[in-house]
Amino acid sequence: MRKSCIKVPKKNGEQIRRVLLEIDLLDNSSRIRSEGEVLYLPLTREPQQCELMDLPGEFELTEHEFAEQKGQLKLEDLLENVPHFEVIGDIALIENDVPEPEKVAEAIMRVKNNVKTVLATLGPVEGEFRTRRFRTIAGEDKTSTIHREYGCRYYIDLERAYFTPRLATERSRILAQVKDGQIVADMFAGVGPYSIMIARKSPNIRVIAIDKNPDAVDFLRRNIELNSVLNVEAIEGDANVEAGRFSGIADHVIMNLPHNAREFLDAAIRLCAPGSVIHYYDITQEDDLFQSSLKLIREAASRAGRTTDIIDTRVVRSYAPHQSNVCIEVKVI
Rank of each mutant, 00 (worst) to 15 (best):
A250F: 03
Y154Q: 00
R171G: 01
D215L: 12
V232K: 00
F246P: 11
A199E: 12
I174A: 06
A250R: 07
Y154G: 04
A189S: 15
E170M: 04
Y154S: 05
T169P: 05
I208N: 00
S228D: 15
Y154M: 10
A161K: 01
D211K: 06
R245G: 13
S247E: 15
G248Q: 09
R153Q: 15
A185Q: 02
Q182S: 08
A250T: 05
D238M: 12
A199F: 09
V207M: 02
E159F: 02
A161D: 02
E236S: 07
R173A: 15
E149F: 02
Y155G: 07
P214M: 00
A161I: 08
I210S: 02
K201C: 06
A234E: 01
F188N: 05
F163C: 09
R173H: 08
Y154C: 10
R153Y: 13
P214D: 09
N213P: 03
S195P: 12
G248E: 11
I156V: 14
N213R: 08
N204T: 13
E149I: 03
F188A: 03
I196A: 05
Y154R: 01
N227F: 06
A239V: 02
E225Y: 12
R206S: 14
S172P: 02
N204G: 13
I174N: 00
E233Y: 09
G192M: 06
D238W: 08
F246R: 06
I183C: 13
A168V: 01
S202H: 06
G248D: 11
R221V: 10
N231L: 08
F219Q: 05
V217D: 02
R160Q: 13
R245N: 15
L167K: 01
P214R: 05
V207Q: 07
E236D: 07
S228K: 15
V241P: 02
R173P: 00
K212C: 11
L226N: 08
V229F: 08
I174G: 01
A161H: 01
K201R: 09
P203D: 12
N231S: 08
G248W: 08
A185T: 10
D251T: 08
L226G: 08
P203R: 13
S172V: 10
P214H: 03
Y150S: 14
R206Y: 12
F219D: 00
F246A: 02
I249C: 12
L226F: 07
R206V: 10
L220Y: 07
Y155P: 03
R160V: 04
S172G: 13
R245Q: 14
N227K: 03
N204S: 14
A189F: 12
D251N: 14
P193S: 04
S228N: 15
D218S: 14
E170Y: 04
V217A: 00
G244V: 06
D157R: 02
E149Y: 09
I208R: 00
P193R: 00
I235W: 04
T164Y: 06
R222Q: 13
R160N: 12
N213H: 04
A209S: 12
E233H: 05
P214T: 02
C152N: 11
I183T: 15
A189C: 13
R222F: 13
S195H: 07
S247D: 10
I210R: 00
I224C: 08
I224R: 03
